[in-house]
């Protein structure tokens, strides 16, 4: 955080900043909160079952743009879905997480996808299928190919990660950022790009001088 506060002032202003809402979905205890925690804090801790919604932000500086992710995390239990009906709304991307050492969670990820398909049109949201817990390779129940294959048929991004051993966590968010930015470019010519918000960085740059 501190680092960002210093570095993020003088150099920007040229490239645009995009704000994207990313939601984490998946069965209970597949590592949704841990993925968010790893990505945002670069740390791992055993976490309590998520109750309600929590929310993190992370800024990603790319050559062409700055991407600010708003990462929404919620409980994995189906009962909670209705509580967080604001959860899906306006999401630009979804991480569909399962545990590679638990076949049931993979099956449930497929159900989650069906939910998502009801809420969004195919080009409205970027969806990534994430097989988490590669550190438990010895107990693997879902083959990499199986995840890959499913992702291909459904046209999803795919990656296997480990929040615990920090494997490909940044990569999956990076892949999402790039996919989103690509879509921005495609839509740049179209008259009204959907659900996109640009933050004017001139404003926050100006803030600095006054104090």
């Amino acid at each position: 955080m501190a680092q960002k506060a210093i570095l993020g002032t003088s150099l920007e202003g040229i490239c645009p900043t995009y704000l994207y809402k990313v939601v984490l979905l998946g069965s209970t205890s597949v590592g949704k909160s841990s993925l968010a925690y790893r990505y945002v804090k670069n740390d791992f801790k055993e976490s309590l079952p998520t109750v309600g919604c929590s929310f993190f932000t992370q800024t990603l500086k790319l050559e062409v743009a700055t991407v600010k992710f708003e990462i929404w995390d919620t409980a994995g239990q189906e009962k909670y879905h209705s509580v967080c009906h604001l959860y899906y709304r306006g999401a630009h991307a979804a991480l569909l997480v399962y545990d590679i050492a638990n076949k049931e969670t993979f099956n449930r990820a497929k159900l989650w996808l069906r939910d998502l398909e009801k809420e969004f049109l195919p080009d409205e949201i970027v969806i990534a299928l994430v097989g988490n817990k590669t550190d438990l390779a010895a107990e693997r129940e879902v083959a990499t190919e199986e995840g890959e294959e499913f992702a291909r048929t459904k046209n999803l991004l795919f990656m296997e990660t480990s929040a615990k051993s920090n494997h490909q966590v940044e990569d999956i968010f990076m892949a999402i950022a790039q996919e989103l930015l690509q879509q921005e470019q495609k839509k740049a010519s179209a008259p009204s790009p959907h659900g996109r918000s640009t933050v004017d960085l001139g404003e926050s740059g100006a803030r600095m001088g006054c104090c």
Binding site: M1, A2, Q3, A5, I6, R207, M208, C211
Partner: peptide, 8 residues
């Protein structure tokens, strides 16, 4: 860590 208080 260090923060610029002007940014807080």
């Amino acid at each position: 860590f260090r923060v610029d208080l002007g940014q807080m």
